[in-house]
Simulated assay, not measured.
Amino acid sequence: MSASSDGRGPLYRLYINRLRRQLESAPVPRHVAMMIDGNRRWARQLGYDSAAHGHRAGAAKMREFLEWCDDVGVRVVSLYLLSNDNLRKRDSQELSDLIEIIAELAEELSHERDWRVQHMGRAHLLPPDLARVLADAETRTKDRTGLHVNLAVGYGGRGEIVDAVRSIIAQHDQDGGSLEALAASLTPEQIGEHLYTGGQPDPDLVIRTSGEQRLSDFLLWQSAHSEFYFVEALGPDLREVDFLRAIRDYATRDRRYGS
């Protein structure tokens, strides 16, 4: 069955409903990580003079994406919004616009449903106003029990691992332990507990838009056994049908966890 591309036609809705029925008894990932990509290309292809139009459309799509995840029973979603590399390399005006858009998104998400918002990344690298908005959203939602939303802002996977190891060393030193004892006792589980996602399940499914097939320093440790799904659509063009197909594909995979 073909589906209309605008996401509003009757055939599209019929197809969506069929996919939902197929997923009623299917295993749903507990944790989905999303790498939204292609916002700038989307804006350029539509003739906009600023990448901000694409980033704003991408942020609106992420709100939809979180609703889709919540509706099918996903418990944790991690969104890759701004990397440490972005902070260093993006044009100053584009970065300024993106920071404003992310702040608006974090504020809005903290008032959505029963969602809990958590910042992942190095807050000290962010502009103070953005760091404050992220901290306020986290505080405002800390007691909620609904969808757990991780916002990766000022984030880098290698940096996260470094921060985890530093935390372990600092705690061990505070407890009066020796480096020899630490080296002998260090385990992957211990490192996992000190990551930004400590206490959360690792991502079962990592989705990336725009057809790019790379990890881009996102959740390097946590995605060791994740399933990956790549969507050709640019970020703002992602449809619910694309998401449901990703969940359906995940449900058919034989997860081997490295074996």
Rank of each mutant, 00 (worst) to 15 (best):
60 A>T: 08
69 C>S: 14
157 G>D: 13
128 P>Y: 07
176 G>E: 13
49 D>N: 11
160 E>I: 04
62 M>K: 07
74 V>W: 00
28 V>M: 09
118 Q>P: 03
94 E>F: 02
30 R>A: 12
97 D>T: 10
73 G>V: 11
108 E>F: 11
64 E>F: 10
53 H>I: 10
206 V>A: 08
205 L>D: 01
67 E>D: 15
117 V>T: 10
155 Y>T: 00
102 I>R: 03
183 A>H: 09
206 V>E: 05
197 T>P: 03
39 N>I: 12
60 A>F: 02
91 D>E: 04
131 A>T: 03
201 P>S: 07
240 E>M: 09
150 N>G: 04
103 A>Y: 02
168 I>V: 05
72 V>C: 11
113 R>S: 14
256 R>M: 11
4 S>H: 15
8 R>S: 15
28 V>W: 05
32 V>C: 04
110 S>T: 01
65 F>V: 14
110 S>E: 01
224 A>F: 07
12 Y>F: 12
105 L>T: 06
81 L>F: 00
88 R>K: 15
83 S>E: 07
238 L>G: 00
73 G>H: 06
62 M>N: 13
131 A>S: 05
207 I>R: 06
212 E>Q: 04
157 G>E: 07
174 Q>I: 12
19 L>D: 04
252 T>I: 14
49 D>Y: 12
26 A>F: 02
237 D>W: 10
128 P>W: 02
67 E>K: 15
186 L>W: 08
24 E>H: 08
31 H>F: 11
104 E>C: 08
70 D>L: 07
86 N>E: 12
80 Y>L: 00
176 G>H: 01
195 L>F: 15
252 T>H: 14
33 A>D: 01
10 P>F: 04
104 E>W: 11
206 V>S: 03
235 G>P: 03
77 V>Y: 01
48 Y>A: 08
18 R>E: 15
42 W>S: 04
176 G>I: 09
194 H>P: 08
129 D>Q: 07
144 R>N: 13
156 G>D: 01
229 Y>R: 13
243 F>T: 02
35 M>N: 07
50 S>Y: 09
163 D>F: 08
73 G>A: 07
212 E>A: 12
245 R>M: 06
95 L>F: 08
220 L>M: 11
210 S>G: 03
153 V>N: 05
70 D>C: 13
248 R>D: 10
69 C>Q: 11
2 S>W: 15
251 A>N: 06
145 T>I: 10
158 R>M: 11
92 S>W: 14
